[in-house]
């Protein structure tokens, strides 16, 4: 039995797929012909002997989920920080502010709490004064919002 030559699969590829595939593949392969390995190595039997030293509390720990109120205030503080930085650097665009610059600013500029408080209403400040946020909640919040850091790195 022979297949009809005019039958097609129905599959298609993005426009110019094969042209760009060829270019990228050839470009990569020519570089790999020059150098293809990083040159890094590990101590002998590093992976065989590797043990992850979990802190005693980490294994048994059940992380508390952030409640909505805590999330709201942490988001507010983060937003206030960004606003403060934006208004403190009038000549800069937000996308030009690097994570490093923000870190240096926070380290060296000695931001006062009343500067941050200026972005919140008195009711919000009253609520904030009774708010209790544990270290684990803060850690979880930062972890779950790691994309913030990625955006700043860009």
């Amino acid at each position: 039995m022979t297949l009809k030559s005019d039958i097609t699969s129905g599959f298609k590829v993005p426009k110019a797929y094969f042209e760009s595939f060829d270019t990228d593949f050839i470009l990569e392969q020519t570089l790999k012909q020059t150098v293809s390995e990083s040159g890094f190595k590990t101590p002998d039997t590093y992976f065989e002997k590797l043990e992850i030293r979990l802190p005693k509390t980490a294994n048994a720990r059940t992380l508390q989920q952030l409640n909505k109120k805590t999330t709201f205030y942490l988001s507010g503080i983060a937003a206030s920080l960004v606003l403060l930085l934006v208004f403190s650097w009038p000549s800069e665009n937000l996308e030009n502010i690097t994570a490093e610059a923000i870190e240096n600013y926070l380290i060296y500029e000695e931001i006062q709490s009343d500067e941050l408080a200026g972005f919140l209403t008195s009711d919000e400040l009253d609520d904030l004064s009774t708010l209790s946020i544990s270290a684990s909640e803060i850690e979880t919040y930062i972890f779950e919002n790691a994309a913030l850091e990625s955006l700043l790195i860009d």
């Binding site: 150098v35 390995e37 990083s38 040159g39 890094f40 190595k41 101590p43």
Partner: peptide, 13 residues
């Protein structure tokens, strides 16, 4: 001591 790359690998880094 944990880098065994040659000159070209160092250049690559």
């Amino acid at each position: 001591v944990y880098f065994e790359g040659d000159e070209i690998q160092l250049k690559l880094q």
